[in-house]
Computed example of a mutant assay.
Amino acid sequence: MKYILAFLILLLTLPASAAQLSIELDHASKTWQTADLLKHPGIQTLQVVDDVSYKRNMTYRAVPLAVLLPGITSQNHLQAVALDGFAAELAAAPLLEKNGAQAWLAVEDPAHPWPNLADGKPSAGPFYLVWTSPQAGHISPEQWPFQIRAIKQLKTVAERFPALLPDPKLATEDPINQGFALFQKNCMACHRLNGAGDAQVGPDLNIPYSPTEYFSGDFLKRYIRDPQSLRHWPQAKMPAFAASVLPDADLELLVGYLKHMAGRKQQPE
């Protein structure tokens, strides 16, 4: 057994190899090879300040993501799927933005592999969605998916997963619906709710119990702000959501949605 474990660790730490990225849009599909992206006319050397995954400044060869999404409009919805099952739900509008926060697809060059994310873990490659000036768009850590293998155009979350919907009697601008939008942006990459969602990383946030039912007082908000401050273990994956990314008012709305959904439990089919 120890030899198998040693072999797996060795595989994780080997230099990057050429990979492919599948982009599946309603009107067109394309598979990009690493070499093709590294030769793309739009590729640039990009400096990313305080990279979310590496927790330091990083330099990448990257292509503006918008140029890889022909025909996509700001009303569309996309999902970035990672090798480990992480599934980031992405509204198209921020990905197409050319001012303020801008989305880039960083491409790992096999000849110059990126560092490992941690001891015994691989790098963020082969493809990584990174942002310049993320603070300008309140970009969430969940909008920085790494180890991407596919980007897909999908119907909206509400259309695909009705079990996530708040009470339909609520007005569109009701705080609960605002919290639902924040849940999609910040939580769905890792979590399901009522069994609904594509993520395979974190626990369901309503079945059998909502965290609002077992975190008393402000502990849930404290946990979202800094998970490691309440539950510390080396394998923890949940990032901290700083106030610069999830302002206090938004955090209140998100928790309000979770409280509301605790009264709308549905068993997964």
Rank of each mutant, 00 (worst) to 15 (best):
R231K: 05
T156R: 13
A181D: 08
G42F: 07
A103L: 12
Q235I: 04
V67G: 07
V48R: 05
Y128N: 12
F146A: 15
P166K: 12
K98N: 13
K169Q: 11
D26P: 01
I176L: 02
I207M: 14
W32I: 08
L90I: 04
A242I: 09
Q33N: 07
Q267L: 15
A28S: 10
W32F: 06
Q200D: 13
Q33K: 05
L90T: 03
Q75V: 10
M58Q: 11
P234W: 02
R231T: 00
P64W: 14
L251F: 10
I224M: 14
Q135L: 10
P145I: 11
E159I: 11
A87M: 13
L164K: 08
G71K: 05
H191M: 01
F86G: 07
K98P: 01
I148K: 00
W131K: 08
P268L: 14
Y257M: 01
S29K: 14
K259I: 08
N76A: 15
A91E: 15
L11N: 04
L83G: 01
E108S: 13
G85Q: 02
T172Q: 15
A189V: 01
K98E: 10
A62G: 01
N177A: 10
M58S: 06
L129I: 08
P70D: 09
R222Y: 05
M1Y: 15
H260T: 03
Q178H: 03
W144Y: 14
Y257P: 01
S123F: 00
I139T: 11
H27T: 08
P168R: 14
S17F: 15
V130F: 09
D36E: 15
L65W: 05
T212N: 10
D218V: 13
K221N: 12
Q135K: 09
K30S: 00
Y128T: 02
A87L: 00
P70E: 08
D248W: 07
N57A: 11
F86L: 11
I151V: 03
D226C: 03
T73F: 10
W32L: 05
K265H: 07
Y223V: 04
P162S: 07
R192E: 07
P110I: 09
L117D: 08
A19C: 03
L182Y: 06
P94D: 10
K185Y: 10
I23R: 00
A6M: 15
L253P: 02
A124H: 04
Q44G: 04
T45P: 04
N206R: 08
R149L: 04
A62L: 00
A199V: 04
I139L: 01
D198N: 09
L65Q: 07
Y128A: 14
L10W: 13
G137V: 10
W144Q: 14
G125K: 06
V49F: 03
G71Y: 09
A66F: 04
L258Q: 02
K30D: 07
M1T: 14
P227A: 03
A158R: 13
